[in-house]
Design a protein around this nucleic acid. Sequence first.
DNA 1: CTGAAAGCGCTTACAG
DNA 2: CTGAAAGCGCTTACAG
Lengths: 349, 349
Amino acid sequence: MKSAPLTVTDIAREAGVSRATVSYVLNDRRDVRVSEDTRGRILETARRLGYVGSPAARALRSGRGDVVLLLLPDWDISAQLELLLEEIGRLVAEYGLVCLRYEGEHWQGALHKLLSRISSACVVTFDPLHRDDRQALDSAGIPDISAQLLDHPGLPHTTALGQDTIVSAQIDHLLAQGYTRLAYLAVDEPRGRPFTEARVKAFHEICAQRQVDGVVSATVPSSAEAISDTIRDWTKRSDEPLGIAAWNDLVGLAITSAAADLDIAIPRQLGVIGGDNTRVAAFARPPISTVKFNLPAEARCIAARIAEVVGREAQHDSSNDDPTVEVVPRLSTALQATHGNDFDERETG
Amino acid sequence: MKSAPLTVTDIAREAGVSRATVSYVLNDRRDVRVSEDTRGRILETARRLGYVGSPAARALRSGRGDVVLLLLPDWDISAQLELLLEEIGRLVAEYGLVCLRYEGEHWQGALHKLLSRISSACVVTFDPLHRDDRQALDSAGIPDISAQLLDHPGLPHTTALGQDTIVSAQIDHLLAQGYTRLAYLAVDEPRGRPFTEARVKAFHEICAQRQVDGVVSATVPSSAEAISDTIRDWTKRSDEPLGIAAWNDLVGLAITSAAADLDIAIPRQLGVIGGDNTRVAAFARPPISTVKFNLPAEARCIAARIAEVVGREAQHDSSNDDPTVEVVPRLSTALQATHGNDFDERETG
DNA sequence: CTGAAAGCGCTTACAG
DNA sequence: CTGAAAGCGCTTACAG
């Protein structure tokens, strides 16, 4: 037998109090005095009966939902971004909010459809907003916070972690290891294009600053063949060791595979550094150097802005003074190393 | 100047009709007759003013939300599962529903917190439900559909794709290629444990059915070292070629890396097949054979059950007659091949 | 075909 | 400290 869901009225009746009191207790409204005795009885009753409040009624009355809607970008979520999202979820849970992700069908330009289906406290975006979507948010009165890890023309990135930061870590590592010729290799995936473009651009700018000569870059189809062709082309130009910064660890893997096929020695003739600290880099042979981000700091920063926007006091220090990017050195760039002992090839955690 | 969000009343006034009519048109209620003229005027007005309906009011009144809440499992989402989820999202969008994902904080045992924060039409689970969570769903009157790709003791998998299906595809491929000794290698990740256990179990059962001798399996820490040790141990036992079914492509990569270090020839002495058709397998050297799933068929099946549960007519044929698992053969298992020509090493799409 | 009215389950000022 | 009452913005029977 299926009965209608319980309401505050049921709990109030069962506990022998008014609906208002039930609401105060269930929302932990500490500014309203309720005797410990009554409070306990209400909580016990709600638990015993299995009360689940109506989010719709709550949102309608209070004028705001409890969902933080993460509008995931069209580009592939790296393992690193995944960690960022999980951490944000953990932090905002302390404000009684729940993070939900929307992914898949490109919502761009049709955000109003989403907003009319789910009552959100705020929305987090990772890409610049379409004009219509901006308007939809304004009409619905839903605040948005933008977590752009990518510098768009005219739009500064809004978190501390820019594409240039990642690229410069790669470059500086390769230079420090003794590679004098540098290259950047990205793969052409429609979803990741804005990112790859930003990184290639940053690569050339930073190399210019560092006064590196013979700098090349390429954006090729995501196939082993195309990557192999590029490596062959780059390495036959000179005998000096070439250091390649790869778009991500997967491209790094493809580069080491191509080098093996072409009999190019890593790290002596070719150095490779990947981009997102996945286990692919650790499991490849040779193990591939990569870049690790400091996401907890980023997450705190974003969570603090969510708290601000929904009118809560941030509970964590959101000052962001830790280094945001760190190189994980491995054999693939150990040009000067004696014999690998300097490099920790094991992963912790 | 910030104005309050528009309501149906505003649209009704502006379009010169009643609120009821606005509601009928906006919900595309074809069972209620509204003149084309009026319909057009209302739609135009809503669009022009940028009306975004209140999901809370809608849900409260209609008694049901429009969100399909995907409760993602604690194990890592493979690239394949990602495709499944995207396809489900696409399909249910046709019923006016929107798929949202909850991930991160283990919600197990505290589902009532989620349910009291977001008004859902239904919930999709990938793991067996905790007792308290089952009760929370019942109390809230929210239907759930279970998409268990894993056979739990006493709980049959609810989609056509079982762990045993994947493992038997791996085994049959290795046997067909001429490997007579077989092994299964899984890594011990807390989040994936139920899956690895199910696969190891299936591996032994299916090998017994196929009357394969000298079958071994291991579940080792997820480190290059542990995997390498295991490979060394297994290969020194006999000279007959050993075929290894790997838990996933990443483990496949680690196995090929270990073989390179140990001077074990692939595919002659050692054959390797991965598990989830990622690009890691395509980019490794040698390229690694892997297994591909037929997710669109699974997605249709799940979407049809969602439609049923929320009282909509399924729009797509959900009969599931396509093969659900397919091996992608590559060099890593080409024991009998002359020279690679038989194997397509390029990825399409 | 259109409109007036009820009511979904909460939260929150306000009066005791 | 507690209770009666208003009202959030919709949808939907029902009466015209």
